[in-house]
Amino acid sequence: MSRGRLATRLRHQLPLLAWLVLVWILLWGTWSWANLISGLTVALAVTALLPLPPVTGGARLRPLPLVRFVGHFLADLVVSSAQVAWETVRPDRNRRGAIVAVQLRTDSDLLLTVISETLTLVPGSLVIELDREQQTIALHLLSVRDRADVDRQKAAVLAIEDRVVRAFGSAADVAALDRQPDQPERTSS
């Protein structure tokens, strides 16, 4: 491997390296130079022995939308936890689930990961499949009342995508939000 490629690889691995050192120091619980140096050694060994593909696309953080996203996320987490908890105590016999496919507008590995994680944690949804090429995400909805409810929950999914992209996405990702999806929503009925 040439020097140039090594330097590029090191730069791509830099966020991961920093994260590993941070975790190491947090695990020890105290700050010291010995911890920093041993953490750095371990992190270098881990990234050298188990290399991960670099995260492409690059993300940026926008503070205000980030606060909005985190605030919505925490509120949704509390609401959905309460809902699911209530379902376990008082199961509704008439409760129906649903499997829906939602057409997302984002085309970035990192953002799709954040969106899927968020979707599994917050509203009444659970990610089953993610079609990377079609940008379609298949979700299981825990509890729906009728078709209007299904449509409302699908709109909530898009709202979450919107908040995630505005918080973490690049300018191109945000622009993609406003474009209408060119392919029709995939339904099989």
Partner: peptide, 12 residues
């Protein structure tokens, strides 16, 4: 999957 419990199944 308990399909009898599903209201909508868009994946079939």
């Amino acid at each position: 999957v308990r399909r009898d419990l599903l209201l909508v199944d868009e994946l079939g």
